[in-house]
Every structure is written in structure tokens, then in C-alpha cells.
Design a protein around this nucleic acid. Structure first.
Lengths: 225, 225
DNA sequence: GCAAAAGTGTTTGGGATACACCCATGC
DNA sequence: GCATGGGTGTATCCCAAACACTTTTGC
């Protein structure tokens, strides 16, 4: 097939699954659609990717505009997820969506075009398009990433307690872990070190605070859980 | 941004990294370009994805036409790899490429538009576009897949010897494995069973032939190497 | 002193690794 | 009988999993 003659490209979209931890575990950012199709339904923040912009650039701009979230400052870990391309996924016509997955913590949302909110992945509303599938896929990918990389750092503050760290893993994995085994194993990976600070909260012993040695993504020497 | 006003989509391409085992280890399918850009250079089989066709459909058709390889019959394992989208990757203009990785064995190539051949990944010619990066990425992904799935089956015949199986792993991993440990570990995964056939070849003891219990993709209970 | 979360060790079983010789065949 | 690749077992170490009590604080 030659370009130019009668080649027509499908629409190119980008969509983002942005995770953070909240009171009810892992949450994902959604926006309420105000136009058809799926007007009134919640959806992943996303939109058109025009020629001349990379998918990351388009994503950055769209998520800021539509959901009021600035990925470059508030979402330290972002990776491309998968490209969804079934013909029928958008009732307006063939649209290929390059999806991304990102993680952050206490992500601030500015004023935006659409109403935006974080929903616990365990209590998602009805979703537009195939966005439910995309979230499920992103969740499983995040769980996998936590087992063989230091990606958790993006879900935690700079200084964190071992309990917070364990809670992050439990929220993503959806199951409880043994405290003693978790600490022994994680500390043996040499990814984090103690600080001289402690965290006091409530009527109980204060917790030591830890820091990651590096905030760049690394593969673990042996996989975790 | 609204569709319709002045939205123009980038060109959508698909490209395939098709692996098989050959005399010099892991090989990948390339086609020789006969037109600019990169005329005369080797490239991955790929081409335009027009509206109305999924990327798999487009891939299927393009690889058959340009390289003479019928994916549906000769490439039992195919998965989507990554979407490459840097603006400058195609000198003709912004083209987003959805790439796929596939594995087969003794893949027949029919007559095709372009000259097509398998090259050992250790001896690749100069490649067009960013196709060298794509192959490197596909190779690392394949190695990872072999550690946690039964995907090797796609590189082997229906009946195979344990030596063939080990050789397949060694070719993909690029290093040698211990024979006794390999056999003990692989057999303990319960993915394969002995047949009553044997393989005679050369002046030495004949080898037992094995079969996979299932040819559908499965995740291993514990990861391999 | 009591409630609440932080912190800490030992035992046991199984898989990972390292390693060398005998077996069945063709010529 | 000899060359060639097929086939096999053991000892050691480390990691994974299971499991319960003491410590430090606020009130």
C-alpha cells in the first residue's frame, strides 16, 4: 500500500490510568463525560493525538486540560501500557488508543474542563468505552511491576515508614502480607535506608522513616512476592 | 480538541519482529527495502494500517504480502510489543508504529513483493528506521516471556528432545545452562510429558521425545531462570 | 495501666546451584 | 572400541513461609 493515494489513518487517541493510594486502597483518576457518546458516564482522561505530537506530549496536555492533573510534576512514574485497537471500541468510528499507566501520591487536581475525581479500583462506577478493561489491565501490570522493580517509590512520600511501604504493596496486590517476612525481605534488597527521622502519630510507638536510595526505575536482583 | 474541525491523525504503521531458531541461534525476519527512504537497507516487515482494520489484521496482511510469511499458520505465538511514536522515526513524516513480536519454527516464506530472509540476531545488517531498537526490545521481551510462561513451545516442533528445549532457551538467553539442573527444573514444572517416540540421529544414544501438555499460553507457577 | 501500632528471630521445607560419570548407539 | 551426544543424583546454601511476643508511646 502506498501513502498518498487513498490512505486514511484511524483516529489516534491516548488514555491514562493514573493510580494513587487513598483511604480505600488503590484509586484511579476518572473524568465525567459531558458529551456523547457516554455522556454522564465516567471515563479515563484521554483524547485525540494530532500529527506532530508524541503520545507522551499529547497525554501530558490532555490530562492537564481535562482532569487538571499535571503529570510532569505530580506523577513520577509513567509507562506506556498497551495499544487498544478494536474497531468497535469507539462508536464514533475506528479509534486506536495508546494507553499509559502512571503512579503518584496525593495528586493535586487543578480546575479542569471536566469534573475529575479519584475512585477506589474496588468501587468503580460504570465506565465509558472499554475503559474498564484498560483499568484491569493497568492494575495487573502495576502489580507485576512492583514484584520486579522499585516502582513503589512513586506511590510513597519521600520519607515513609515500613508500614506505609507494606500497605502500598498490600493495596496493589489486594492481599495481606506478613509483617516480619515483608520487612526482612524488603530490607535485604538494599533499595532503601533508614533516615534519622521518626514519625509520631497516635498513641503508640513512633516509626522510623526510610528513604529510597534511588528514585530511578531499577529491576530487582530477585523478584518480590 | 474536537474531532472534525481540523484534527489530522498521524500515519499508523504496524511492524513485526518474527523470531525463529536457526543454525546460528535466534533469527529474525527482515525484508530488503526497494524504495526510499532507506532503499537497499533491510527492515522489519511492516506497513500502513488503514482505518477499519485492526493492527493484527493489518499485520497479517502486510507480512504475507511483503515478506511471504503467513502469520496465522506459521507463527503460533504473537503478542503486541510496544508502540513507537517519536516524531523523527520516519523521515517522510510523523508515523506511529504499533509493533508485534512473534515466534515460530522453520517458517516457510512464499514468494513476496520484497526480498525476505531470516538473519541471526547476532549478525544483523544495517537496519532502516528505528528497527534496530525494536528488535533489541523484542528480544529482551522474549527472554522475559520464556522465564515466566510456556511460550517456548512456539519455537519448537510438536515433539522435541530435552536438548532441543534447552538449546532454545540458551539461544534466547544468550548463555549456556547446566543440563542436569535444566532438566530437573523444567520437568518439575509439569508443562511437558514424555511420548513413546524417540529421536535417532548420528552415532549416539537416541533421545526421548516430549510434548507440551498445552499449547495455549500459560504463566508458570514459579519463574524460570 | 491500657490501647495501639512498631519492632523483632527462629524453624522448616523446598528450590537453586554446583558438579562428573555411565549409557546407547553408529561406524 | 571409540566417538558422540543422551541421560542421571547428591550435597550445600539460601530463600520463602509460618508463626507470637516485647517495646514505645498517648491518654
Amino acid at each position: 500500500m502506498q501513502h498518498g493515494s487513498q490512505y486514511i489513518a484511524p483516529t489516534l487517541n491516548v488514555d491514562a490510568v493514573i493510580f494513587q493510594l487513598g483511604g480505600k486502597g488503590l484509586e484511579t483518576l476518572l473524568v465525567k463525560r459531558s458529551t456523547d457518546p457516554f455522556s454522564g458516564k465516567w471515563a479515563l482522561p484521554g483524547g485525540y493525538n494530532a500529527v506532530g505530537h508524541t503520545t507522551s506530549e499529547a497525554l501530558q496536555k490532555i490530562v492537564l486540560t481535562k482532569a487538571g492533573v499535571d503529570i510532569s510534576s505530580a506523577v513520577p512514574y509513567v509507562e506506556q501500557l498497551y495499544t487498544f485497537d478494536t474497531i468497535a471500541r469507539d462508536p464514533r468510528g475506528h479509534a486506536v488508543s495508546v494507553t499509559y499507566m502512571g503512579c503518584g501520591r496525593e495528586i493535586p487536581t487543578q480546575k479542569s474542563l471536566d469534573e475529575a475525581a479519584f475512585f477506589p479500583v474496588s468501587e468503580l462506577p460504570q465506565l465509558a468505552f472499554d475503559h474498564g478493561d484498560i483499568i484491569t489491565y493497568a492494575h495487573s501490570r502495576l502489580a507485576a511491576k512492583l514484584t520486579y522493580t522499585n516502582a513503589v517509590h512513586a506511590l510513597l512520600p519521600q520519607d515513609f515508614t515500613l508500614t506505609q511501604l507494606q500497605t502500598a504493596y498490600e493495596a496493589v496486590f489486594g492481599r495481606e502480607l506478613d509483617k516480619r517476612n515483608f520487612r526482612k525481605k524488603f530490607l535485604s534488597l538494599n533499595l532503601i535506608h533508614e533516615t534519622d527521622k521518626t514519625w509520631r502519630e497516635g498513641a503508640h510507638r513512633p516509626a522510623k522513616l526510610y528513604e529510597f536510595n534511588s528514585h530511578t526505575l531499577e529491576s530487582l536482583s530477585r523478584s518480590f512476592d
